[in-house]
Every structure is written in structure tokens, then in C-alpha cells.
């Protein structure tokens, strides 16, 4: 359950203040599949960063699972990112010097989970995302699709309640992109809230709820009847 109330975020470009987010009110229920669309500069990435607690709003209130997270300390926010939120990035953001398995293991390590348990969970994830053969390869030795699968495995290893995907197929060709989307949608089918930021209309249309943004404001908010 996500509730944003009167969220504002401004950036300063020289003398001028630019509203990246202007009085955003938004509610997303648990298990929803939402796409956020809009041209570049519309504020969709900023919204995602705020939802992921990577960025702080200048004003407004953000509640996650009935808890005000806006006022939490940096350490507590890090804990929420660790336990409740999984990020999937356009450029994958894998650590180049670590193997696929080690990349997937990172969130578990950060949480201080003992090594034996980590190995079990990483192995399960490698199995689930068909990465078993590639476990000991570094990102440079993996294809784009494999890299994004590693990134998704990493984002989901802590079993977060929300997956935030920022242009997850932006660096992939059409077919591989579709495969990656299927993986993400499978997570949604298992009850995870999935929020995808994209400027690709076709991709955005796959979501049950489509939010359109422009100039830091929500322009459209459309929910499919079927969803």
C-alpha cells in the first residue's frame, strides 16, 4: 500500500526553480501493476526515486504500508529499501567486478544474513531465472538479457513487496525486452506490487493501471476494467 500526499520536489537550474513533481497525490494498492509514462522531463523518474526512497520530497507525505517513511532517518530508510523495495534499472547496474552470483548475493550480504543461507537463496534464484550456467560469469561476459535477469534476481532476492523498474527494457531488443517483462509480470502475479516507468506506450499498455505524467503533474490515471 503506497500513499503519496501533496508531494513536491523542485530542482534548481541556475536561478530558476523547476518543479520535477508538483503536488502529487497518488495511491497504489498492494499487488497492483502500474506503469508511469510521460516524455522525458515529465518527472516520472523523480517520482520513482521518491517511491524508492532514493530521493526526498521537499514537501508532502509518503506512507508505505501505513507507515510515514518521509520522516525516517537515513539508516531506517536504507532498511526499508533493503527489505521492501527492489530496483530494476535500464542500465542494469551490476557491479562489474563481481560474478552474477555475487551480484545477486549483495542485498543478502547487506542485510547481514549468514553465508550458508545466502548460498541457498542465491542458488534458488539462479535456478528460477535460468542463470545456473552463468553463475560464475562477470557482467561483461553476459548478454543484455542475462544481465537484466541477474538484476531482477538481485531485486527480488529479498522478496520485496514493491518492484520499481526504470525503463527495464530500454537497453534490450524487442524480443528480449518482452521476455524480461514477462519475468517481471510473473512477479506481479505472485502478489508483488510492480511499478514500471517507461516512455514506451506499448510497454506501458501492458500494465493494468496507466499513469500519464507531464511537467511534474499526473495528467491521466486510467485503470483497465479487467485489472
Amino acid at each position: 500500500m503506497i500513499r503519496l500526499t501533496a508531494i513536491t520536489r523542485t530542482f534548481h537550474m541556475g536561478e530558476q526553480a523547476v518543479y520535477a513533481l508538483n503536488d502529487i497525490n497518488l495511491q497504489i494498492a498492494s499487488g497492483e501493476y502500474v506503469s508511469i509514462m510521460g516524455p522525458s522531463g515529465s518527472g516520472k523518474s523523480t517520482l520513482l526515486n521518491i517511491l524508492g526512497l532514493l530521493d526526498k520530497p521537499d514537501s508532502g507525505c509518503y506512507e508505505l504500508d501505513e507507515k510515514r517513511v518521509t520522516d525516517l532517518s537515513e539508516t531506517e530508510q536504507a532498511q526499508i529499501r533493503r527489505e521492501k523495495i527492489g530496483f530494476v534499472f535500464q542500465s542494469f547496474h551490476l557491479v562489474p567486478r563481481l560474478t552474477a552470483a555475487e551480484n545477486i548475493e549483495l542485498p543478502l550480504t547487506l542485510s547481514g544474513i549468514p553465508s550458508e543461507q545466502r548460498q541457498i537463496r542465491v542458488n534458488e534464484a539462479l535456478q528460477a531465472f535460468e542463470l545456473k550456467q552463468r553463475a560464475q560469469h562477470r557482467p561483461a561476459e553476459l548478454s543484455g538479457g542475462q544481465r537484466q535477469r541477474v538484476a531482477i534476481a538481485r531485486a527480488t532476492i529479498m522478496q520485496p513487496s514493491v518492484i520499481l523498474a526504470d525503463e527495464p527494457t530500454g537497453n534490450l531488443d524487442h524480443q528480449i525486452g518482452a521476455e524480461v517483462m514477462t519475468l517481471l509480470e510473473n512477479l506481479h502475479h505472485r502478489g508483488t506490487t510492480l511499478i514500471v516507468v517507461t516512455h514506451d506506450r506499448e510497454l506501458g499498455a501492458r500494465a493494468h493501471r496507466q499513469i500519464g505524467m507531464r511537467d511534474g503533474k499526473i495528467l491521466t490515471d486510467h485503470t483497465d476494467d479487467a485489472g
Binding site: 537515513e74 536504507a78 529499501r81 533493503r82 557491479v95 547487506l110 542485510s111
Partner: peptide, 13 residues
Amino acid sequence: IGLLKAIGATSAD
């Protein structure tokens, strides 16, 4: 470093 923060590393980490 940005990624580590995104996946939940604290500044202290």
C-alpha cells in the same frame, strides 16, 4: 556506490 545505496546499504556501510 549508488547501486549499493539503492539496494539498501546505509552510509555507514
